[in-house]
């Protein structure tokens, strides 16, 4: 199957300005050389700690930020530097859903106006047809048709998130970028929204990029998972593989930190000392090795720790600080090959 989305060495650097002349004094490397692909109907989970660049990456895919370098291909067309006018018809295919249902819906718009807006912009059908479509969409996301004439404040958090889903799928997109879609919801409501997203994906064959910090949720919904650390993907594999046999040290630490809802569960926690390094002045070598003070950190200075396919479909950054000796030897051989 050909890829729906192909991202190549994407970079998003934000300038940092200082002094009286507001001269650029540095840059925040929020996304720093990320490559991956997404197939139609597939879910790619994106996890990492706050500040790792996962949301920025999501916004770059929709050109809500203009990427500094790299390339984004949507169905083989390069959209990275396409003009906004040319991009507009393509926006149908890729939509976004945001975290906070209270802030991402305009409180002065009725639900009808909110859900109809993308249809209006893309000039689909007549006004009357669009109104009917809105009600169909609401039904599809499990809201009554009468919800159309209410306002966002009349709904609970979970219902508001359903309105967000209705708006995102209004144009029948091929891909949805979901930025923390359930983090603001209670656990019982969260599972309702997750079930809805899974059902809609099957029905409409949409691909999802699912950004979240809750690893259990990501595992549940994703086919493949990419783990980001300091603007880079450090590991990417099938979700079962990544959860049961992670290879990168950071992935291991992240997984071991999940609190288990079982009081008799024996913890075997890998402690991560220190903080995520600043993306303004990232360490010269392995960012993870730097955090854990790895003895081999000095070796990695200036090293290009690109992703290698260590097992079929299992990609990991070739970094001696983060891999077992065996994996590192394998990775080193793959890099030089």
């Amino acid at each position: 199957m050909s890829d729906l989305l192909e991202v190549n060495d994407l970079k998003m650097h934000f300038p940092v300005r200082g002094g009286i002349t507001m001269k650029q004094v540095g840059s925040v490397k929020a996304v720093d050389g990320v490559s991956f692909t997404v197939k139609p109907g597939e879910t790619l989970g994106l996890v990492g700690e706050s500040g790792c660049g996962k949301s920025t990456l999501g916004k770059c895919l929709l050109r809500l930020y203009e990427p500094t370098a790299g390339q984004i291909d949507l169905e083989g067309r390069d959209i990275t530097r396409m003009s906004q006018a040319k991009l507009r018809p393509l926006r149908k295919d890729i939509q976004m859903m945001f975290q906070d249902p209270a802030e991402s819906l305009n409180s002065r718009f009725s639900v009808r106006q909110i859900v109809r807006e993308p249809l209006d912009i893309q000039k689909i059908g007549t006004r009357k047809e669009r109104d009917a479509m809105v009600e169909d969409l609401l039904e599809k996301v499990g809201l009554p048709r009468s919800a159309a004439d209410k306002f966002p404040f009349e709904f609970s958090g979970g219902q508001r998130q359903r309105i967000g889903v209705a708006r995102a799928i209004a144009l029948n997109p091929k891909m949805l970028v979901l930025d923390e879609p359930v983090s603001a919801l209670d656990v019982s409501v969260q599972s309702q929204v997750l079930n809805l997203l899974v059902d809609l994906q099957k029905e409409l064959n949409m691909a999802y990029i699912f950004i979240a910090h809750d690893l259990a949720v990501v595992k549940h919904i994703s086919d493949r998972v990419a783990v980001m650390y300091l603007g880079k993907i450090v590991e990417l594999a099938d979700s079962d593989v990544i959860y049961h046999s992670p290879r990168h040290g950071y992935t291991k630490a992240l997984l071991s930190a999940i609190p288990h809802a079982d009081p008799s569960y024996e913890k075997n926690r890998i402690r991560l000392e220190g903080e995520v390094p600043s993306p303004i002045d990232p360490p010269k070598g392995s960012a993870f090795g730097h955090r854990i003070n790895h003895p081999r950190y000095d070796e990695t200075v200036g090293m290009d720790m690109k992703l290698v396919e260590i097992a079929s479909g299992h990609w990991v950054a070739a970094d001696p600080c983060s891999l077992t000796e065996e994996d590192w030897q394998k990775a080193k051989a793959l890099v030089s090959a």
Binding site: T43, V187, S188, S191, A216, K219, S239
Partner: peptide, 13 residues
């Protein structure tokens, strides 16, 4: 209603 790490992916929660 907690998604379990052992449940099959995309199963009904």
């Amino acid at each position: 209603s907690i998604p379990s790490l052992d449940a099959p992916r995309k199963s009904e929660l």
